[in-house]
């Protein structure tokens, strides 16, 4: 895995898709090309209460990325210094092999340029000291990004507080 971690706090996510739109805006992508996507599952009733999940699916930036192995031209690469998996558009010939290879559907087709585009954690933004586009605009700040060991410990925090107060326990359910 890359040295980074993208944390999505499900409890705060409202499935608004602002992350997806900011991603597309930042990369200037046409309709149909979606490097990150929020998949909504539900709502469904659990014990009489409606609950929904919003699964945030960017690229996972694998340790041994199948897309990189599959790429015949070397366009798909893993950045040495931090493990970000990205496409070099100068080398991409649009063969789509990476799209087939990825088990998660991360590489996307950009019909406007006839090449693949994918989540690269907005490495130009990261290199400029900024956060990825999706994380920056996230409506509820449910997305966090950083080096894995610096990620907020919301789950533990919440659990501890719920343990300490019966009031909070109701909210944790």
């Amino acid at each position: 895995m890359s040295k980074y971690f993208m944390l999505q706090d499900q409890q705060k996510c409202i499935g608004c898709h602002s992350c997806e739109i900011a991603c597309k805006t930042n990369k200037g992508l046409p309709a149909g090309t979606r490097p990150c996507q929020v998949i909504q599952v539900g709502p469904k009733f659990f014990n009489g209460r409606p609950r929904a999940s919003f699964i945030f699916m960017p690229c996972f930036h694998c340790e041994n990325p199948w897309c990189v192995s599959a790429c015949p031209t070397g366009a798909m690469q893993r950045r040495e210094k931090d493990g970000i998996v990205f496409v070099d558009h100068n080398l991409c010939v649009g063969c789509k092999t990476c799209i087939s290879a990825c088990p998660w559907g991360a590489p996307q087709w950009n019909p406007e340029i006839g090449k693949v585009v994918k989540c690269d954690y907005c490495m130009d933004r990261i290199d400029a000291g900024l956060r990825p586009a999706c994380v920056t605009v996230c409506t509820t700040h449910c997305l966090s990004f950083g080096e894995t060991e610096t990620m907020p410990v919301v789950k533990r925090d919440r659990y501890a507080r719920a343990m300490a107060s019966t009031k909070g326990a109701a909210h944790l359910e």
């Binding site: 602002s18 739109i21 805006t25 920056t136 605009v137 409506t139 509820t140």
Partner: peptide, 21 residues
């Protein structure tokens, strides 16, 4: 690029999907 005004409490970069569009 457009983002929520980072200097305004409650915004801090956030934008809704319409704002992002």
């Amino acid at each position: 690029w457009i983002e929520g005004n980072p200097q305004v409490a409650g915004m801090e970069g956030s934008l809704c999907p319409r704002g992002s569009a």
